[in-house]
């Protein structure tokens, strides 16, 4: 019993610096933001009222939800395919998949966003090639719009979607798949009616992680959206740094944090934290 207690004490001591850091650098300043949302420019619920009526804020909220939903679906589907290869492929396939999953983590988000600009812009590689081959006469609008934002965000978020999926696929009992085949089920049918349903917790976890990340994305939409496809985080930035409207920016932040908090609560109801790594 004493050993158990001292173990817990030890764990608490080891975690203390992190907790302290989170409180000082995150929770405390956030309380300040909460205070702004109720006091600037005048005390009261005025800013929250504005959230409900301001057309621009609402359209940004809706766009953010739409982009996040599309990015989530595309990322999870793509990550699912990669993870199947990573977890269940031949040894060579596994190494290649692992490489594809891990390399993006070494490249900064900025570098990747500008990489996509170089590929997708009007005089970028893709448009130049397509014009050279003669498929198109006018460049396609691939960037500075929602499409560009979705491409960039999906690319960034796929690796994060892989880990919960991998965890659920690794814990799956191979004999169940054998049983399905032995009972006369084709490989396709086994995949759709046994494999996919059995990795449900991984799919939910992965989708929620991607969705939550997408909601707060700043750099990628700012660069690939080119100011025309503004998402929530960029709107907050604009309100606070480019217009003296701190109160509204703060109110949007508070709503975003509450919404993300609720989603995280949902996430942990479905899966245990250790399934995410």
């Amino acid at each position: 019993m004493r050993a158990y207690l001292s173990d817990r004490m030890g764990a608490a001591l080891l975690m203390a610096p992190l907790l302290l850091f989170l409180v000082l650098a995150y929770a405390w300043p956030f309380l300040g933001v909460v205070k702004w949302s109720f006091t600037l420019p005048t005390p009261g619920l005025g800013q929250y009222n504005a959230l409900l009526t301001d057309q621009l804020v609402q359209s940004v909220f809706i766009r953010t939800l739409r982009i996040a939903a599309i990015v989530t679906i595309v990322s999870v589907v793509a990550a699912y395919a990669i993870t199947v290869v990573w977890v269940r492929g031949t040894p060579v396939q596994r190494v290649v998949a692992e490489f594809c999953i891990l390399v993006p983590f070494w490249i900064s988000v900025l570098t990747r966003a500008f990489g996509w600009v170089a590929l997708l812009s009007n005089r970028g590689l893709i448009n130049t090639w397509l014009q050279a081959v003669g498929f198109i006469s006018e460049p396609l609008a691939l960037v500075r719009n929602e499409f560009g934002v979705i491409v960039g965000m999906t690319h960034f978020l796929i690796p994060f979607a892989v880990f919960p999926l991998a965890s659920s696929m690794r814990s799956l009992d191979d004999r169940v798949l054998l049983a399905a085949r032995g009972l006369g089920s084709s490989r396709m049918r086994t995949f759709w009616s046994v494999f996919v349903p059995m990795t449900r917790s991984g799919i939910i976890g992965s989708a929620l992680i991607v969705f939550v990340f997408s909601l707060g994305f700043f750099v990628t939409p700012a660069i690939l959206g080119g100011g025309r496809s503004v998402m929530i985080a960029e709107l907050i930035y604009l309100r606070i740094f480019q217009s003296p409207d701190w109160g509204l920016g703060a109110a949007i932040s508070v709503v975003l944090v509450l919404f993300v908090g609720a989603l995280m609560a949902l996430l942990f109801r479905y899966i245990r934290p250790k399934q995410l790594v």
């Binding site: 004999r175 169940v176 054998l178 049983a179 399905a180 032995g182 046994v194 349903p197 059995m198 449900r200």
Partner: peptide
């Protein structure tokens, strides 16, 4: 086929 550990479909 009946497997060791049964291999029922858990879902």
């Amino acid at each position: 086929m009946v497997f060791q550990g049964y291999a029922l479909f858990p879902h």
